[in-house]
């Protein structure tokens, strides 16, 4: 059984809702990322999305853009991220999903990327700007290595496309709660509930909802119909605040994120 399948299966048994935090690798530095991964895992994350920074993140709002810039200003590359994961993987048990844009993966080399991901125990990969039509080469390479390629679906995705995506997806389906970039504060519209219902008609895969989930109440509202809530910008904003002072301490950042994660864990289905 693949890691993500297993993680969602055990949620099913305990009647818990899933919590999938997102942080950016190398924000504020890779040493802190290692500790954050462990802390989030211990806090009960179902899986963790680890953002790979990109210079031109056209699908992200200002909070995640700035986090990527902080990582890039330290020169963090995909190679560094894999090296960090290879060294620290045993410290956190939650399945890891690498989350990023296509160009860094393409330049790394698709096969080399899939091999490195396998070596580091990566459970899944999500490439924001790689829609289903263009995804086959990467999907096939990951699939051979038991790694899931996760797809986003949006309120604008047609039913015909949903079926097409469901046909090649594995791990879980990431439903974008509303049209827009990450982290913009707007009331969640009913779009995600309708979308989740449409997705259920075409697949049995677990469904995570993300974009705009900033507190426990919203997470609770989402997991009434979805299997997991993805929390990104809220956590990344906490990291930003905690590292705003030049003399920030790693321990304080980890503690703050642990507390924040606590808001989203142990939600009952």
């Amino acid at each position: 059984m693949r890691q993500l399948e297993q993680a969602f299966a055990s949620l099913e048994k305990t009647k818990h809702a899933g919590f999938i935090p997102f942080i950016v690798a190398g924000d504020p530095d890779l040493e802190t990322t290692v500790e954050l991964l462990r802390a989030l895992s211990e806090a009960g994350a179902t899986a963790i999305e680890l953002g790979v920074p990109f210079s031109d993140p056209a699908a992200d709002g200002p909070v995640i853009q700035r986090a990527g810039q902080r990582a890039l200003s330290r020169g963090v590359t995909l190679s560094d991220i894999f090296a960090m994961l290879a060294e620290s993987r045993s410290q956190s048990s939650a399945p890891l999903v690498l989350f990023g844009y296509y160009n860094p993966v393409l330049q790394f080399g698709l096969r080399k990327f899939a091999d490195a991901a396998r070596r580091c125990g990566v459970a899944g990969v999500l490439v924001t700007d790689l829609p289903a039509e263009a995804a086959e080469p990467l999907r096939a390479l990951l699939h051979e290595r038991d790694i899931d390629l996760i797809f986003l679906v949006a309120p604008t995705t047609s039913d015909a496309r949903l079926r097409q995506i469901a046909g090649i997806a594995s791990g879980f389906i990431y439903a974008v709660a509303r049209t827009g970039v990450t982290g913009t504060h707007r009331e969640l519209q009913d779009e995600s509930e309708t979308l989740v219902r449409r997705i259920r008609r075409v697949t049995d895969l677990p469904i995570a909802v993300g974009f705009g989930i900033t507190d426990r109440a919203r997470a609770r509202a989402v997991v009434r119909y979805a299997d997991a809530a993805v929390v990104g910008s809220r956590l990344v904003a906490e990291i930003e605040t905690a590292t705003a002072e030049p003399k920030w301490r790693r321990g304080a950042v980890v503690q703050r994120i642990t507390e924040c994660a606590g808001e989203f864990t142990n939600l009952k289905k």
Binding site: A59, Y102, L130, P131, E133, A134, A154, V176
Partner: peptide
């Protein structure tokens, strides 16, 4: 039909933009 000239072109966008395109 997918907007490729040989290896170049295509459509590399977030899923939300696929339907509008």
């Amino acid at each position: 039909a997918q907007g490729y000239w040989g290896a170049y072109g295509g459509r590399f966008v977030a899923e939300t933009l696929v339907a509008p395109l």
